[in-house]
């Protein structure tokens, strides 16, 4: 190791200061939400949003939990959707990724292009909406949210990149032992793909947990239990929805904790992934760096 010079120390100091500033900027808005969610509505109305609640209060959370059934239903819908979607998506993506990376498979380039082209030219929202509603009849059906998020060309390419790092000799040794292609995949390859499965599973799970877009297209008021982020979207955008679904109609408008309720819902809807995030971060970073350039 060579001795560090004065300029090295100078740059490091500068880096620490600037990175700290940027990190504070990144985390600050989150603190604002958490702080406000624990404030009383009255103080927020006078003083505005805050990081440190001047008047600690759980009224917003109490109101949400009073209507426990809706919240619990939304949680169950979101968790089920995330689990089922991630498992199904992972199975299909890993299977496809392996087959398309097999160098002896003559159709791999053709099929790869078929999948990739899907992301190059899309019909756009209007034809997609029409086919989902008129042909597949998926309006007000949870499948309209579950199915479209199962996979993407990008995730399949990411999986292919991971499979590429497994030596072809493993497939060959399986063939010599007389194993079929599916058994080679399931018993020899899949166990070696654990980090890839964790990474791609994380991207899928994140997609499902943060989902609000497909819900906004296809789930109408007839669906009571909405995915959490879509519930949050509606609470933010529609005061009427908020009063009816969360508070019940007996609350008068003036003492209704409109602002703090938005923040508390945000904390409850997003809390779980923020808690899981530090543990999953390793896989997230692996996905970013492996799939970066071909994103």
């Amino acid at each position: 190791m060579v001795q560090k010079t004065f300029s090295d120390y100078f740059v490091e100091r500068l880096a620490i200061i600037l990175i700290t500033v940027f990190s504070i900027l990144c985390i600050f808005p989150f603190l604002l939400i958490i702080g406000t969610s624990f404030s009383s509505e009255a103080v927020v109305r006078i003083k505005g949003f805050t990081i440190i609640p001047e008047d600690f209060s759980l009224e917003a959370y109490k109101m949400i939990f009073k209507s426990g059934k809706i919240l619990l239903g939304s949680y169950i819908v979101t968790i089920l959707m995330t689990l089922v979607g991630t498992v199904c998506g992972l199975s299909i993506i890993s299977m496809t990724g392996y087959a398309l990376q097999r160098r002896d498979f003559p159709y791999r380039n053709g099929i790869s292009f078929f999948i990739y082209f899907a992301s190059l030219f899309s019909a756009g929202l209007a034809p997609y909406y029409l086919i989902m509603v008129q042909l597949y009849h998926l309006k007000d059906n949870y499948l309209a949210v579950l199915l479209p998020l199962l996979m993407s060309p990008w995730l399949i390419i990411l999986m292919k990149n991971y499979v590429k790092s497994i030596p072809y000799e493993i497939t060959e040794s399986g063939k010599i032992d007389g194993a079929g292609d599916f058994r080679i995949f399931a018993e020899l390859i899949l166990p070696m793909l654990t980090p890839a499965l964790a990474t791609i599973g994380l991207f899928l799970a994140l997609g499902y947990w943060n989902e609000w877009y497909q819900s906004s297209l296809f789930l109408s008021a007839r669906i009571v239990y909405k995915p959490l982020q879509y519930m949050l979207y509606q609470i933010i955008n529609q005061v009427a929805y908020l009063k009816n679904s969360v508070a019940g109609s007996y609350v008068t408008f003036t003492d209704f904790p409109q602002e703090t309720l938005k923040m508390a819902t945000a904390v409850i809807a997003t809390g779980p992934i923020i808690l899981v995030y530090p543990f999953a971060q390793k896989y997230f970073i692996s996905g970013i760096t492996v799939g970066a350039v071909k994103g």
Binding site: I93, M95, A99, F105, Y107, A123, L147
Partner: peptide, 26 residues
């Protein structure tokens, strides 16, 4: 290669249903 082809079928159905089928709707 019928097994490998079969392994690709679910993904292909997915992209046909959600990416290719809406194209005539243009």
């Amino acid at each position: 290669y019928k097994t490998l082809i079969l392994m690709c079928i679910p993904a292909m159905i997915f992209f046909i249903a959600f990416n290719y089928a809406p194209l005539p709707g243009l």
